[in-house]
Amino acid sequence: MNHDVYPDYYLSDILRSTKTIALVGASPNAERPSHRVMAFLLRKGYTVFPVNPGQAGKEIQGRTVYARLADIPEPIDMVDVFRAADALPALVDEILALAVRPKVIWGQLSVRDDEAAAKAEENGIQVVMDRCPAIEYPRLVG
């Protein structure tokens, strides 16, 4: 897939079909973008599982924080990535090792690695990079 431009229907379909989201790089700091986006996603009715090894076992916005994706107790539809782009290849490997894989990997603004995306897509996972669901949702879903 060309990750320079996404058709609106592609993003809209993802946002409408997703119910559960693992937010990798979740922060307890209310000033951090990941904290604000998590609050937005929760308000829109998504079930959000924060993932941050340094915060594991604590809570962010009333949700238990997990150290790794494999620790989340139920299948997830989408992994929303708030990590540096160079963390994406290892994260894709972690996702591919899951017993039940998510349908989507969504890299936040500036999170892009085309090789990692190709590997995920070769394994049947949709990929969005360098976009924010909190920006795309109001534009496409309402």
Rank of each mutant, 00 (worst) to 15 (best):
G57H: 05
Y6Q: 05
A70H: 03
N29R: 15
Y6L: 02
T20W: 15
F40T: 01
G142Q: 06
Q126G: 08
V51P: 03
M129S: 05
V48N: 00
G54W: 07
R32N: 14
A97C: 08
V79W: 01
L96S: 03
A90M: 10
V104G: 02
P33L: 10
A120L: 08
L15P: 09
A134V: 02
R36P: 07
N123T: 05
L11K: 04
A67N: 05
Q55A: 13
V104H: 04
A97P: 07
A30E: 12
V79A: 11
D86M: 14
V81E: 01
K19P: 07
A116P: 05
A116Y: 08
A90Q: 06
A84G: 11
E136G: 01
L41C: 04
D93F: 04
V37S: 02
P7F: 12
E31H: 14
E136L: 10
W106H: 03
A26G: 01
Y66W: 11
E122S: 15
E121S: 12
Q61D: 09
S12I: 02
G54E: 06
L69V: 02
A87M: 04
D80G: 07
A84D: 06
V51A: 10
A22F: 07
A67L: 08
N52R: 10
Y9R: 07
P73N: 05
R112M: 14
A84T: 08
S17H: 14
I125L: 09
A70F: 04
T47D: 02
R68G: 09
L11T: 02
A99H: 06
D130T: 07
L69E: 01
H35K: 01
N52W: 14
D86L: 10
D93E: 15
F40L: 03
A90I: 05
I21A: 03
G45P: 13
A85R: 07
G25C: 13
A70M: 10
